[in-house]
């Protein structure tokens, strides 16, 4: 049986301080008043209580990253590949659904030809998860095969309990990471195990359940349903849903250049923008917002399934939480199922 270890807040801080010695720490921290995932220098900045505004996907697929540098001297061009990460990344405070989202990005970037920019960061990373004891009202991860205490994809799972945290080593990597602060841990007793169980039950009960399987099946012949026009009529095409979604990964590649040198960068992009598919000839295969709204939903719920046998949404609800016009994925699912 898996073993839970209790750590007091001191031990927790010692743990992430130690992690900071060997890894680049990527964790929720307050920046400009908002709790967001970011690289943290000082382990005391880590703030686990609130679910961060952003997902941690940027640790592996940064919003902007250099793919290569070049120098130009007359007709001589010299290319230098991007820098490799110096030390591996430890994501602390990643939620179970977000770890699930990384498992959806993996097949995209690791299928040949391998995208080493992503895979190198990902392969050496340590994921220290944080169980959701009080899910947001947007959450529906249990409808997508996950749950607020899901260990899958994590190396360590932390649960907040009275007086501190309980930690579970999910993988051998996770066990070794905890080993460093072994002296400060004590085995969780019956009372603590009972508390973890109770919190798990409460969190799962709080979650709304949707019939995603039926939704996916219904999409087959819903291509021409007026529902897409109805959503498109409200959507303002801001792209927030895609930037904040932990499973969205579309990107653009651009050159930034001075007179004698420059770099080729990859930046996040969004399928919600018309320019995303606009061809240089002026032709656009997805000219209308309704095409783009539909593409987003069908990509996640049908084509991901066709391609990888996985649903491309983890039910984090971020897209609904932050949509300025309240386009709510949960409503879309229940409405399509109802029609």
């Amino acid at each position: 049986m898996a073993e839970w270890w209790f750590m007091e807040p001191d031990a927790f801080h010692a743990f992430i301080r130690e992690l900071g010695e060997r890894f680049m720490l990527y964790a929720p921290a307050r920046r400009d008043g908002i709790v967001t995932f970011t690289f943290v220098e000082n382990h005391e900045d880590v703030e686990l209580s609130k679910r961060p505004f952003t997902s941690p996907k940027a640790a592996f697929l940064p919003q902007t990253e250099v793919l290569l540098k070049f120098s130009l001297r007359g007709e001589r061009v010299h290319l230098s590949p991007a820098q490799r990460p110096e030390s591996p990344i430890a994501v602390v405070g990643i939620r179970p659904c977000e770890a699930g989202a990384l498992k959806l990005l993996d097949p995209v970037f690791s299928s040949p030809p391998e995208d080493v920019h992503y895979t190198l960061r990902r392969e050496n990373a340590l994921l220290v998860g944080f169980a959701c004891t009080s899910p947001e009202r947007w959450c529906f991860c249990t409808s997508l095969g996950s749950s607020p205490f899901d260990e899958d994809g994590l190396d360590v799972l932390l649960v907040e309990v009275s007086g501190g945290y309980c930690a579970l080593a999910v993988t051998e990597r996770g066990r070794r990471a905890l080993e460093v602060v072994r002296d400060m841990l004590r085995k969780a007793d019956e009372a603590l195990l009972g508390e973890i169980e109770e919190r798990r039950r409460q969190a799962e009960r709080a979650m709304k359940t949707l019939d995603v399987e039926r939704f996916i099946a219904r999409l087959e012949d819903m291509g021409d349903d007026p529902i897409w026009e109805e959503i498109a009529a409200r959507c303002i095409g801001c792209g927030i849903c895609t930037y904040l979604c932990p499973t969205c990964y579309c990107f653009d590649i651009q050159d930034e250049a001075g007179l004698t040198s420059g770099r080729r960068v990859r930046v996040w992009d969004s399928c919600m923008y018309p320019e995303y598919t606009l061809e240089a000839s002026g032709h656009n295969p997805r000219p209308k917002r309704v095409h783009r709204v539909k593409n987003r939903i069908y990509h996640k719920f049908r084509w991901y399934v066709d391609l990888f046998g996985l649903v491309g949404c983890v039910g984090c609800g971020r897209c609904a939480e932050h949509c300025p016009v309240n386009v709510d994925i949960k409503e879309i699912i229940s409405e399509v199922v109802r029609r």
């Binding site: 970037f109 995208d115 990964y249 579309c250 990107f251 992009d269 399928c271 598919t277």
Partner: peptide
């Protein structure tokens, strides 16, 4: 023809 950036099935467009 579609607008392309990566050419290798990653960028999505």
């Amino acid at each position: 023809e579609r607008r392309m950036k990566c050419g290798i099935g990653k960028c999505g467009r």
